[in-house]
Computed example of a mutant assay.
Amino acid sequence: MSAILPGATIGILGGGQLGRMTAMAARSLGYRIQVMDPDPSCPARFVVDACFEGSWDDARAAADLARGCDVITLEIEQIAVTSLQAAAKYAPVRPGVAMMEIIQDRILQKNWLVDHDFPVGEFRNIHTEADLQTAIVALGGRCFVKSARGGYDGRSQVKIGFDETASSAETLAHDAWNLLGHRPAIAEKALDLEKEISVMVARSPNGELKSYPSAANHHEHQILAWSVIPSSVPISLEEKAQEIARRIAVEMSLEGLLAVEMFLTRNGELFVNELAPRPHNSYHASERACTTSQFEQIVRAVCDLPLGDVSIVKPAAIANLLGELWLGHEPRFDLALSVPGVRLHLYEKHMPRAGRKMGHLSAVGESPEEAIERVLQAKELL
């Protein structure tokens, strides 16, 4: 395969913050960028050459985007298969359609992992309310139920059995099934977690593969609150996490980036949680921590350039800035930026709302702990 060299045009399906930051990295390398997004004023709009308005299932808009591009990638996994197929008629789509079909459906994804001998926590496939009732009992009464399709940052997900008021499995199943809109889902047994980590893997069409040191992730209300690279897990667990992530990338014939989210339990077990075939919130810190950021790496990977060095230069952490920060007052960015080693990253989203990611802070430190301390100190000053 021949490399797609700078000067060519990259198309991105999705123009959110991930598309925006990918476009900025691609511009630094000398590429032209076009995106497709349902919102004509999406965050990437202000840093790209052209923005095509189209919903994720708008195959015509995806084809229009691809006609003027040398390669297509994506920043969100909800792109309809028909749109991916339409784009593929005009330019290579990386990651490919076969991989996306599996990852888009949590039932297919989880069963693929089991079929390929990857470690996952106990779960049940849910197609009916009766399935869910049976699963709640089988999983010990405490579980997370996630819609098979769509949903992220806690959306289209229900926690079952975590409150103090006792309810029957029948009542819990009925309420959760209604909340999820009577849609197929996965029920996952609640685990006794020590830590949540992720590993980002890059793989080129020519088969070159590199994986970043793992990141440690802290969630609040099922949304990532902060993340740090490196994760500081024991070497044996780091090696196991790296092996799992790299093997998934090879088995799926990845072309692009793949974030492998994992659970580390208190008894030392490591389970794959979910796969994200795109840049990932937990690797925003790679812009500060690593020789090559995830955003430059996806450009290198989909254009079949040599992959960049993923070595850690200095530990770095990020803290997400959600829309509620803007509700009622103007954030004091000047105070946050007074903390040594802190940078501000805003996405140019015009309408803040609770739970919406508007930007993030990043910080470096001499240790992961110092990076976390600095970024959380800066966030408090906002």
Rank of each mutant, 00 (worst) to 15 (best):
R332T: 14
L381K: 15
T9D: 04
T291D: 03
I298E: 01
G341Q: 09
G14A: 10
D39M: 15
L74T: 13
W177C: 06
P40I: 11
V199Y: 01
L382Y: 07
H127M: 12
N273E: 00
G121H: 05
G15T: 13
G341C: 04
L84I: 08
I76S: 05
C290N: 07
P119K: 13
M252H: 00
I235D: 08
R266P: 00
D64V: 14
P184N: 04
S282G: 02
S311F: 03
A259D: 04
S156A: 11
T82I: 07
R343P: 03
G341H: 05
L381W: 13
N267Q: 12
E194D: 11
I248K: 00
V114S: 11
A59M: 05
S55P: 04
V339K: 00
E164L: 06
D334W: 05
L132D: 03
L191T: 05
P340Q: 08
S147H: 10
I229E: 01
E373D: 07
S282Y: 00
E369A: 09
L180C: 10
A363F: 04
R374H: 09
A87V: 06
E188L: 10
Y90W: 14
A50E: 14
P368M: 01
A190C: 07
I4A: 02
A61W: 11
A91T: 13
E255V: 13
P234E: 15
L381G: 10
A166H: 13
D334G: 13
A26D: 02
Q242C: 09
H350M: 14
M100N: 06
M358Y: 14
R45W: 09
D37H: 07
Q85R: 11
P6K: 04
A185D: 07
N281A: 10
A176S: 08
S28G: 11
T171D: 11
H284I: 01
A378K: 04
E194Q: 14
